[in-house]
Design a protein around this nucleic acid. Structure first.
Length: 291
DNA sequence: GCCGGTCAAGGTCTT
DNA sequence: AAGACCTTGACCGGC
């Protein structure tokens, strides 16, 4: 089991800079990409040193990459640096994921939203390609909106998925969400197009069809093929007294131990979705080693 | 310096 | 109707 945390490292004060659209200039973009790539390498080095072998790369790595304002050929301009970081990732067998924002909605009714979503997915695929990573590096999204008719919304997802370019298709995975599309719904989609399901335990607690954690794990696992790598999971626990679905600030050790015991085996990669990032990830490694 | 309104982009639920 | 929530709070104008 590889453990990881999303996007930013607090100890290193490594975040990914962006800027306002109105301040866009090629110079500012280049400067920001340079800075962000240095920070990405710093975080990955930190992670190796601390035994964290799963990482979610921020979508902000290349700001405005999918916006029409961006004409800069970043993929070519930073080809060597990106390939170099990719070499590091492969050398240490780090698992990589990305999670585009809520604006990426494949099953939207509005063609403009779909078009923007595809452009954003293409950016994510281009980035992972520029890192020269194989298709075990995944891009995770939710099914999207329900628009008052879930079955139609799922059918639209299936139809629109089949129109996506191959580089996007081979990296795309869907995550069960906490309000609309359960694991069961994701499985329905999987059966039509073969897309793997990334399982989120907290979302499953919020919305499910009576499957136990162990059952849900096995169902999700069955959707991952050999070329996809071992299944990925998003792990978090409910913040007490907060709105349903809100993550805790830091790792709930007892909950995580129960999670490790409840799943059938540990041949999987677990993304810890907690606010304090690497701090909790390091505690999780301790718990895993003593499990 | 630092505070706080605002930021490319949606959809849903809660208050 | 407005705010919170989800990806990851950070940017930057105004004081």
């Amino acid at each position: 089991m590889r453990l990881g945390y999303p996007c930013i490292n607090r100890q290193l004060a490594c975040t990914f800079s962006t800027f306002r659209l109105k301040n866009f200039s090629e110079e500012k973009l280049i400067e920001t990409i340079q800075k962000n790539l240095i920070n990405l390498q710093k975080i990955l080095s930190f992670n190796i040193k601390h035994g964290l072998y799963f990482f979610r790369i921020s979508s902000d790595l290349i700001p405005f990459a999918s916006h029409t304002i961006c004409k800069y050929p970043w993929q070519m301009a930073f080809a060597r640096t990106l390939a170099g970081i990719g070499q590091f990732i492969k050398k240490y067998q780090i698992r990589i994921s990305m999670h585009p924002s809520q604006f990426v909605i494949i099953n939207a009714n509005d063609p403009a939203i779909i078009q923007n979503s595809i452009a954003e997915l293409q950016y994510h695929a281009n980035l992972l390609d520029a890192l020269e990573l194989d298709e075990t590096a995944k891009i995770q999204i939710h099914v999207g909106g329900a628009y008052g008719n879930k079955m139609q919304a799922m059918t639209r997802f299936i139809d629109n998925y089949q129109k996506l370019s191959l580089p996007i298709q081979k990296r795309l995975v869907i995550e069960n969400d906490d309000r609309l599309f359960s694991l069961h719904d994701c499985l329905f989609i999987h059966r039509h197009i073969g897309i793997p399901i990334i399982f989120d335990n907290l979302h499953h607690e919020c919305l499910h069809n009576q499957e136990s954690l162990a059952e849900a794990f096995s169902i999700a696992e069955s959707t991952w093929h050999k070329d996809d790598g071992v299944m990925m999971l998003d792990y978090s626990s409910q913040a007490v007294g907060a709105p349903k679905g809100k993550h805790t600030e830091s790792l709930d050790a007892e909950h995580f131990k129960r999670f490790l015991q409840a799943i059938p085996h540990h041949h999987c990669d677990v993304m810890l979705e907690v606010k304090d990032k690497e701090v909790s990830a390091l505690r999780a490694i301790e718990l895993l080693n003593h499990a």
